[in-house]
């Protein structure tokens, strides 16, 4: 115990922190780099809606039976309102990029943004 006194941080602490930050950075680049193409609204593990975000011209709202309202905008989707207690889903904010998702856990409802078609390649080179 004694060697811990009087010293707030050790080199190994900083290395551990740096490793996790590196991981976070890599994950960030991996998941938040591409503009989303498709949005899915999933309720109880069932995909209720699939929306092509690029084809959305006017903002509109989708009212779900469980008291949740999902807002759809050109290129973005988000929880507009929910009757749940914690409002975390609403606070997650707008989803625009591939891999982003938000959920209302009390209602088991999830919205997520994915790429074009999962089977189609992003690009082809000759």
């Amino acid at each position: 115990m004694k060697d811990k006194a009087g010293r707030f941080l050790r080199p190994a602490d900083l290395i551990a922190v740096a490793a996790i930050l590196l991981l976070a950075g890599a994950l960030w680049l991996l998941t938040n780099s591409r503009q989303g193409e498709t949005a899915e609204i999933v309720c109880d593990r069932e995909v209720l809606y699939t929306i092509r975000l690029s084809e959305v011209k006017e903002p509109y709202e989708i009212r779900l039976e469980n008291g949740i309202t999902v807002a759809v905008e050109p290129g973005a989707v988000f929880f507009a309102s929910s009757d749940c207690a914690n409002q975390l889903c609403v606070r997650t904010g707008r989803l625009t990029r591939v891999g982003q998702s938000a959920a209302c856990l009390p209602h088991k409802t999830l919205i997520r943004v994915t790429g074009r078609d999962k089977t189609a390649p992003d690009a082809l080179t000759g």
């Binding site: 976070a24 938040n32 997520r112």
Partner: peptide, 28 residues
């Protein structure tokens, strides 16, 4: 597990950042 989808993977970096930062604070 609750929503049956690997969700919030894009959110993980933010959480890792805050987890490490605040963890460091409590550790100090």
């Amino acid at each position: 597990a609750m929503v049956g989808s690997a969700m919030y993977l894009s959110w993980l970096p933010v959480l890792l950042l805050s987890g490490v930062g605040f963890g460091l604070l409590t550790g100090v």
